[in-house]
Write a protein that binds this DNA or RNA. Structure first.
Lengths: 195, 195, 195, 195
DNA sequence: TATGAATGAGAGTTCATTCAT
DNA sequence: TATGAATGAACTCTCATTCAT
């Protein structure tokens, strides 16, 4: 089955927005990458912002699916779920990784524009995470705080837009995942080791 | 002493870049806010990017000073230093807060452009933080990892650009500082409570 | 009999061109109003201009018919014919009035584009009017000038595109028709009353 | 004294809008005609519509001045004033004539956009004309109707946008002016000859 | 006949930058 | 030092038109 034009555009947009950013990516660049004319972009999307929003919604949906899949597993602990999630995201293949890159890179624009639906999606992701956190609290593995707040903090670390904080330091993806997991779980204090 | 034109421009730029971002702030906007002509901007700065870079260097220098002042205190522990730093940044007055806002909001652009000097500054900040971490390790309050990596992680949380993750949730600044401090120190696991 | 597609398009075009104008009416708008696709427009008409021209020809034919019907009446004077015509046009029902509106609003574009056939139609209308004028001259009711010129002047007043000069002033259509008739017949001087 | 850039742009715009119309005249065309870059247009005018509006206001002001100059003459009758006005407009030199052309050609757009100030101007012109009509009524040369309505009718004939109704028929400008004056004063009936 | 996806030329507009004064 | 007028490249977006189905 041939790929739809809209799909090709979205794919090209994902690529361009991940390499550059919302402002440095022009509609002409996306059109060229997708191999269609500029006009075609506007047949499928009302505006650049609309295209971006749709792409973000798709990206959010992807993560919601990933998060939910892990969250719904009934046979593993909350901590194991968190570890799995972090590994999934950090070790994501090139293609999927771009989606995270866009979300990280352009996170600031999300909340400023295209509010409504996007904020809903964000809330949905947080809720899923909060569910895991709640489970962790029940299991006495996670401290007894507001699950919502803790989920937000975890999310902020996972989608940290600082380019790639540790990528330069820890080349190995497994090492990265472990470091992030350790940091989220225990912070930097020694307390963990007191145990 | 009357404020220098260059100073007025920089101040106006800080304001504009913190309210908007690098791309949505135009030279005209900065000029107007500063009360000078666009031409004057170009007498003091070679380009928009140069102006932005200089501003970022100034912002970095500000934080280096703040960080160093705290780091150099000889009578308090590393953990106390970290708490002090987080409080200083989270509870910064409106004016100083803008600087953090720029750094957070435009963090992604920093590493892509204006590399050289800026990366040096970043490294300098990390080094100061790493010094505190080292002290903490010596004091057995911080886990025995790579101080450099730990410092980067701490920094990423402090300058997290996700708008304001918790601002909407925790209105009280002291509460915010405590939450961030707790998160950095202990993560989300229960082990922290053993302490 | 179901209305033909072409007829539906023409009707939609009449509506759109009367509400907006040639340039602010897009093919997409006409297609939507007609309930057909843009492609269909191009099956029935070679181009936007062609569609417009055809519409104008239809409009002209309508007025030719109206004018001729009145002109051919054998039992009334030229002056009565003129009065009848003006009433017919001014008091035309909403639907017919649109046709006049297009002619008035877009008159300027007629002579610049789509010349040939349209100018013939215009000439035909003028000839019919000139015929009435000639009758009036014979009847010594209209001054002895060039009937062609006088017909043009009358037409220009009737199809005056100044939005609706008097519509705002004279709400009553009969009043409007009387004013226009009076103006065409006697101008603004008192002479008529001298008689 | 060198002509100002803004003046050059306005002049170029007058030319282009008189030869073409609002929609078929592009900013690029005006810029080229004026010998400046497109960007310069936007230094002097906020938008195409703004430029057009300013031009229309200037055109209206020109006619207000012309009308007032004639209206204020204390030694001639209202009828003589009207004749003078018509001659002034019909026989206007090429350059001034363009202004009338724009007003006639784009009259329809005037009332749709740029309302406020422009409608005031129109009203001002009508008032001046109405003043002349009032004088005519007092002198018993003009019929005793609503001066405002009569003025509108006169204006509509003078600024009739039907391309140039009589231009093709009456090449001689004096002849044109006489015909229009005759038409406005006496219409087409024979009564005029009683005078 | 009819559709709707695709095109591409060109529209209005913005903005970092330059430069004569 | 400072100005503001001018530039031109690039931008987002529109729309008459085409064409495979």
């Amino acid at each position: 089955m041939a790929e739809s034009t809209k799909g090709r555009i979205l794919k090209a947009a994902v690529y361009m927005f991940s390499v550059y950013n919302y402002y440095t990516t022009s509609m002409a660049m996306i059109a060229e990458k997708a191999g269609v004319s500029k006009g075609t972009l506007y047949w499928h999307f009302a505006s650049k912002e609309e295209l971006f929003r749709e792409l973000l919604v798709k990206a959010a949906d992807y993560f919601i699916k990933v998060f939910k899949t892990t969250a719904q597993k009934s046979d593993i602990s909350a901590v194991e779920k968190l570890y799995e999630l972090i590994k999934l995201i950090v070790e994501a293949p090139e293609k999927k990784y771009r989606i995270k890159s866009i979300l990280s890179k352009n996170a600031q624009f999300i909340s400023q524009k295209s509010k409504e639906k996007l904020l809903e999606k964000r809330e949905e992701i947080i809720e899923v995470l909060a569910g895991i956190v709640k489970q962790g609290i029940k299991e006495k593995a996670i401290q007894d705080g507001d699950p919502h707040q803790l989920a937000i903090a975890v999310l902020a670390v996972i989608f940290n837009p600082h380019g790639s904080w540790l990528i330069d330091e820890l080349r190995d993806k497994e090492e990265q995942a472990n470091f992030i997991f350790g940091f989220i779980m225990n912070g930097i204090s020694t307390k963990g080791e007191l145990k």
